[in-house]
Every structure is written in C-alpha cells, then in structure tokens.
Design a protein around this nucleic acid. Sequence first.
DNA 1: ACAAAAGTGTTTTAGATACACCCATGC
DNA 2: GCATGGGTGTATCTAAAACACTTTTGT
Lengths: 240, 240
Amino acid sequence: MKNKQSYLQNYVSVDCVVLGYDEVENRLQVLLIKQKDPDKQNVDSYKSQYALPGDLINENESLDEAASRVLNELTHIKGIYLQQFYTFGHPDRVSAPKDADWLRVHRKDPNARVITIAYLALVRIDHITPLAGSFAENTIWRSIKKIPKLAFDHNQILGKALEIIKEHPEQHIMGRELLPPKFTLSQLQNLYEAMSGLQLDKRNFRKSIKTADYLIPLDEKQKGVLHKPAQYFSFKKSKK
Amino acid sequence: MKNKQSYLQNYVSVDCVVLGYDEVENRLQVLLIKQKDPDKQNVDSYKSQYALPGDLINENESLDEAASRVLNELTHIKGIYLQQFYTFGHPDRVSAPKDADWLRVHRKDPNARVITIAYLALVRIDHITPLAGSFAENTIWRSIKKIPKLAFDHNQILGKALEIIKEHPEQHIMGRELLPPKFTLSQLQNLYEAMSGLQLDKRNFRKSIKTADYLIPLDEKQKGVLHKPAQYFSFKKSKK
DNA sequence: ACAAAAGTGTTTTAGATACACCCATGC
DNA sequence: GCATGGGTGTATCTAAAACACTTTTGT
C-alpha cells in the first residue's frame, strides 16, 4: 500500500467575490482589498496589489463559515449570503512573481500550494460600508467594466463569477436585498439589466415579472419626482 | 499581523462520481469501489465499505489532473471527461465512526480534516471496464435507484451529482460518447429519459432534437430486428 | 407648456404539449 | 398474419418579442 499521502498537505483558502449593485449609476461593482504594505525596511520593492478578499481557512469551521469569517475580518462585512461557486487549485496559481513579496511576508511557507474555494455574494452597495481589517490596507469598489490586474489568479476567479450571474440573474435577485424595501418597477428592471448586461423592453419586462409573482404592489407612490410618480412594490417573503 | 496560517494545512482530495449509462436496462449506474480489507490481524473489526473513487491530490498536478489520476489508479479508467461540480469541506466530513478504521490504516493522521473537490463523469457502461487498483478491492456498478450506505459523506456527494444531471441532461449528452457511434432516435430518447427521470413523448422529442441540429442522419438502417428497422444517426462534431 | 419617466395592449412568432394511426420487418 | 417497435402531423397553448402612445407630476 502506498503511503504518499503522509505529508502531502496543502493550504486551503476561501476567496469572496462580493458584487455591489450601485443603483444610482446602475452598475455592478466588485469589492477589492488593497494589500497592506508591510514594513518597507524589511521587504524591498514590495508592491501592494488589489485582490479579492480571501484568506486561509481555520481548523474547526466549515467552508461556508470560513468565507463569512474571512470576509468579515478583511472588510467587516457581516451577515451576507455567500455561495460557493468553484474551486481553483492549479499548482502555480499563487506562484507568479507579482505575488512573491506578499507571500514572503504573510506565509510561513511562501512556496506552498494554495487551493481556494471561491464564493459569490451580491449586495446593495449603499447598504454596507466595508472597513478594511487584517492585512487589508483599504477596500475599494471597482466597476466590473474596469477591473485592474489583481493578485494571484483573482482575475480568473472574478471572471468566472461574472459569467455565473450573467447566466442566471433571476436566481441572484430574490431575497438578497439588492433594492430598498420599497422599489419601483423601473428600479427592478435596471437591476436585471445591470446583472444580465442586456437591455430589456419595459412592457415585456413588466409582463414577465407579473407572471412570476414575486411582487406585492403597495399603496404608495413616489413623491417629489418631476414626472409621473411610480408605484412602489416589495418582494414577497420567500415561499419556503 | 496575525500568523495563524502558519501550520494550518489540510488534506485535499478529489472524489469522482462516474455515472455509467446502461443502454440495455436503460438506467444510470454509479461506479463504486469496495475498500480493501487491510490485514485483519492488525485492525480488528474492520468493515470494508463502498465508496466513490477518490484520494488525496499530489503535489504537482492540477485538480483536474488529480481527478483523472486518482480515478485511473483505483479503477484503471482512463481518458474520460471529468467535470468539477462542488467542494465538500465540513470539518467532520470524514470523522464518522464508520470511517475510523479505514482512516487509521490509510492516513498518517487519521483525525485530520480532508477537503474534497468532487468531479462528475458520464460514460457508456459497456465502453469501459473498471479494474480495481490501489486500495480498491473491487469495483461495482450500482443503480442510482439503489445506493448503499457509502463511506464518508459520499452519499451526499453523489446526491448533489444526480441533482446536477437531472437539471441539465442535454449538457451532459453531447460529445460524451454515451451511445454507440451510430444510434437510433429511440436510443437517444431513452438516454434523455434515464438522465432526466422523465417520460418523453416520441413525436415531440424528435421534433425538438431536430430543431437543435445535433444530428447527422445516416444512410443506414437496423438489420435483423423483428420490427420496422430504424434509421441510424450520429452526432455532429462539436462546432468549436 | 414642457420635460421626464410611468404606465399600458396588441400582434406576431416560436416553442412546448397533447394526441393516434400506419409502416416495415422477422417469424 | 401477427407481434414489435419505427415513424409521422396537426391542433392548441404558452411564452417571448416587437412595437408607440398617453398619463402624471414639478417647474
């Protein structure tokens, strides 16, 4: 019987793709952290990079719990729904030269392989206020149209996340509080458009969302707008 | 800066859900291995169990490569397409009493956590002949309707795999050689039915698959059948 | 009165569903 | 001639797509 399993252990991390819906600009932004500069005296030529919030898992937590904890430690975001979507484990995924400095400072064994389970979350961008923590120097929202070069293989991870929400926008809208408790149908349509990247016809959109009966019409209208005021709606509570 | 990552390493494994389509019985079966009995003198009360083929990953292989290698080592199956579908990492996923004996024999640290990336493959059951290897004592095909109790959390992993193919049968049919190179439309319909678990109407099925143009009609018919001979078809080569 | 977004219906098209009989072959 | 599975068409329903004008408010 072979014994090759004896010492073959690996680092395991989680990475979080947090997409924030910016209703005003009608676009999705991704939450990135800027890696903290370590003491420059010790580490020459260190260049901090942007990265997805992510870190190694702890011993007695599930992967889902790890994702929540790590996101909280780096950005102080709490209580959002994170969904696992893919696992990245190429042997070289953290061994690009651009990442060497960070690893040298933050890992006992900078050359070790790291396998990462990627998570996806969608939030209202004005609903949470990230606050950098742990090794995050600060946090920023970046439009998904203008993604900088990220640490490790994070561009690839983000790309896969964006594919997923484009394919199934509807699955990521209900019950995620991406809109205020009371919203207009135009707001909802804008959200769908931002997620799918498509333009939708107003009448057809309204027909289709009324067929699927997500919505409760409210006895309340917009006020103070310089056009015909829109009716407000809210989501039905999930049927389960 | 915290250093908690220092020694926190984990075992990482891959597990393969290989589903074999049995055309004669028109059903899907899953490939299981029977864990090899170690020397009974040393390990009392060892009970071998059925399990999905899976093992720890090696150092310099990608996850996809690991899945192929592990499957080959345990069953001598080669060259089939394996697709990652979910990662299971609950801290207790390998710590049930039923699994303790196996771990004691096969792992340096039997209490260590193991995170596993699960893979899915679909094959023609008469197209491959598994041959047990490594710690597999033998291999068996079991109908997905009658799954025994499996090692670790493998029942859960298999359940998730079956959900996935039920939801998107069409994605797992093209280009997987689940049928002979020449096949009849009834054979194809049976395959869809086995994968989706649904009964389909013959005329409607034929209409829909001819709309989507997967198929090349061949100038060849069944021979020797005691009914009207069916025309053969083959798949178009993938368009890419 | 004008600007700005809200709101509203009909027609067309395509795809999904339901359904029943004749055909070619081997024995 | 009979048993067996192969093969075919139409009517209906539903969902998606295209498309333009009137309404209500604030200024």
